[in-house]
Each structure stands twice: as C-alpha cells, then as structure tokens.
Amino acid sequence: MGAQLNKEQEQLLALQEKSFFADLTAEEQTFVLRQTSQDAFDEARMVLTESKAIYSVPEARPLVLPAAAPSRFRLMVVPFSSAAAAALLTFIFFRKETIIVQTVDKPIYLTADTVYLKDKIVDTVIEYREGKTIYVHEKTNAHPNIKLSEKVKSNEILPPLTTLGLKNRGESMREDNLVGIMDGVFY
C-alpha cells in the first residue's frame, strides 16, 4: 500500500466521489471497468454516500466556562497610611523636573580685554625705610589667596615719600584716585 496513489487510482477515487456507475459518461464507464467491476464501484460509491448518515448527532451540552480568576488587586486591603506613603514615594521617585530647552538662533559672543575680580584685588605695598631703602611687596584679601610676589628691595628709584602728596598717608592706595591697574596689580 503506497503512500501515493497512481494516476488511475486517483481518477477512480474522483469518479467514486462523483456518482454511481450508471450516471458516468461512456468514457468514464469504460475507464472504471478497466480498473474494477461495476458492482464494486457502486459499492464503494454507496459507502461514501451512506457514511454521512450513520451517526445521529445530538445537540452539544452547554459550554461550561472556566471561572474567572479573581484579581489580586481587588482583594488587597491597604491601610490608608501605607497608601499615602506609597503615593508620596511614587511622587518623589517619578516626578519629572521641567527641562526648558531654548534654541538660540544667534549666539552671542562675549569679549573682554581685561577681567579682574574685585575680591582678588592685590595691593602693592611700598615701604619707605630710613628715606632710602624701599621695600615692595604685595598683599590681598582674596580668598583663597592668590600667589603674591615676595617682599623685595625695590630696584627702582622712587620719589621721596614727602613728594607723593598723598591725602592720607598710611592708608591703602586702593581708595586713592591715583591708583591704576596694570597686569592685575595695583600701583
């Protein structure tokens, strides 16, 4: 018994499904008689037609639907304090900070020749001693302190103290109108 039918067997099956021997064309009847007898053919045909009626089929029973699984969430009883805490934590963890994104069409470029910070003012202190020896050092109130030059003897010939015409001798030059700035250092 092969897995596949040959051409004649396929045709015979097709004719059995079509009709009884008497209802076939002459050509088909000739073909059938080459393969089997008329009675055998009709018997097979009868098997196919009568098989539909051999079982009486009753109505099916009503479908029994599966019970719906209860939702766990519905059964949970949560104390108010826990719910409030959960809500607060949810708010903290999931809140979103507003991010403002601004698109600038024309970027602005800032330029400056000299920049100094007021809290990093450096005073140059000139000490006149004995009218001849002059020491120069720097002091500042900057925080953190910036690097200052060491106290050195001045190599320059400075005018005598009496000729400076300072309004308040001994006060910081910082408040003085004569004070200028060069390379970040007051003089």
């Binding site: 018994m1 092969g2 897995a3 596949q4 039918l5 396929e10 099956l13 018997e43």
Partner: peptide
Amino acid sequence: EGTVKSRIFYATKKITQAL
C-alpha cells in the same frame, strides 16, 4: 494532499472489504 488521497482511497477499499 497525495497522502490524504491515498488514505481516503484505501480506507474506502478496506471498508468495502470488511462489508
């Protein structure tokens, strides 16, 4: 489909033999 046809054909043949 060929296997199906074959099974139908031989099933019918066996039924008629049994009858």
